[in-house]
Simulated scan of single mutants.
Amino acid sequence: MVPRSAVWRGLAVSIAGAVLISFETLLLRLVTADIWTIIWWRGVLLGATLLLVAVASTHSLRILRLRGGAEGLVVIAFAAAVFCFVSALLHTTVANTLVIGSAAPFAAALLSWIFLRERLPAATWIVSLVLVAGLFIIFYDSLRTDSLAGDLAALGYAFCLGAYFVALRRSRGEAFLTVIGYGGLLSAALAWPLASPLATSASDVIHLSILGILVVPLATLLLARGTEHLAAPDVTLIMMLDTLLGPLWVWLALGETPDRATFIGGALILATIVAHAYMTAARKPAGRDTIN
């Protein structure tokens, strides 16, 4: 059993990480640069910051070595998820992006069943069907608007993130920061031929620097720290704060209001995810449940 004080520390750092990462969508909305330049700046700053933290925390350059195909897949999946995430934000609402992207845990479960032959409990299949119903509501409404491409990119983001989680389970736990750092650098390398980093405005550089050097790296560290004291389903439940707070910050700052279909489909998806995560956490004792 984990001491109650440790559980409270885990809750505190996990909530702090979820709240911090919820500002990512607002910062990206404030940037006026094109998608390739955004991905380049975000990838370079995030990658460099996390790799420096990885080396400083281990006092060894060996942590920068990738071992095995699983870690390579993590890097590729993370870079692909970045492309889909930024593309979705530029072509649909923040609410649609985050709500559709919240299907990532179930995309991971589906990919685990297909590629790893892992048996899934009946509850997971039921939850997945409800989730599909929520996504159908959102996509059906998008057919009448110009946000369909963005919604499809958000769905791609969910599946890339799911693939990232599946591959991460087969990688070393201590390589967590390294693989994400390389994923950021790979996304920047792929975007570089079409990016214009030197033409970026001063205000965009400030917003992207806050995002790539402070918000995403610190949120990543806080959420990783949370898994040292809480079971993974507990941290997943807390991370749902991002889906709720992200659109709130954008609405308060920029007046972007989700449409009715997103409210209905999003409420169905969020209620399903929260209920599933809560039941999963209730079945497991609090403790360290890291991905190895």
Rank of each mutant, 00 (worst) to 15 (best):
L161Y: 15
V19M: 09
T124L: 14
R4P: 10
I39H: 12
F85N: 03
C84D: 11
G246H: 10
Y278E: 12
L222E: 03
D151H: 00
P105D: 13
A81K: 02
L50Q: 01
E71Q: 15
V250L: 06
D141K: 06
V44F: 15
I76N: 01
L155N: 03
A275M: 13
S22N: 13
I138T: 01
A275N: 12
A79L: 05
L20K: 00
I114A: 15
L135N: 03
V250C: 02
R144C: 03
A81L: 04
W36D: 12
A286E: 13
L230D: 00
W41D: 11
L177K: 03
L51F: 06
L155Q: 06
H91T: 10
E256H: 05
A153L: 03
T25V: 09
H91V: 05
E24V: 06
P121H: 02
L129K: 03
F159P: 08
V44L: 13
T200P: 05
M239D: 03
G69S: 06
L168C: 09
F159S: 13
G150I: 04
I273K: 06
T124V: 15
D242P: 07
A224W: 12
T243K: 05
A175M: 03
W192T: 12
L186R: 08
T93A: 03
I213H: 00
D259R: 09
G184T: 05
T236P: 08
L46V: 10
F136P: 02
L222N: 10
